[in-house]
Amino acid sequence: MNVFRLAGDLTHLLSLVVLLLKIVATKSCRGVSAKTQELYAIVFVTRYLDLLFSFVSLYNSVMKVVFLGSAFSIVYFMRYHKVVRHTYDRELDTFRSSFLVAGSMVLALLINSKYTFFEVLWTFSIYLEAVAILPQLVMLQRTGNIDNLTGNYVFLLGMYRGLYILNWIYRYSTERRYWQMIVWVSGIIQTALYADFFYYYLKCWNENRTLVIP
């Protein structure tokens, strides 16, 4: 554990708190993509199956349970809550996320480090996480003015990915035999997807106006 990894995890946690806060406090999920949230739920389930048979640390196990719980809570609110579900902008959330799931599964079957059931599912979760933000980014473009909490949620998610890259650089330079090419390549692609959003987020923040993605 290093400071970049810890900061990354805490930023990830904070992003989920911000999103849950928006949904619970405003009783609205306007501008939030249910498809991205469902993809994250799939990512966490397939990656954290190892809760059942591998223990790394109490920290890891607790975080895994928290991430799983928050992902399912968010999906629950967006799909089933009697008030919140009516605020979901279904017509703006039209990305075909099933293609992302299918593509990630095919890639995981082709490129993995060990051809076992759990390893392929874990690799699938890495590929799917890399692209899971796409429905949300497309939805932001279609939403007019993006509220602060939604904008901050996506910004924090992007920060979390950036901090993970710093964590890998740190680990590579300090640990022996630390090498995880699948995770690195996927993570760099994932972070690059935020570049456009970051540009407009910082530009609007600098000019002190409401976030709009052209």
């Binding site: 995890d9 990830h12 591998s54 790394v56 975080m63 993970y164 035999r177 090498w179 995880q180």
Partner: peptide, 10 residues
């Protein structure tokens, strides 16, 4: 170098 078999990150 080989892929680490331990998944110790989140």
């Amino acid at each position: 170098n080989s892929q680490s078999s331990v998944h110790d990150e989140l």
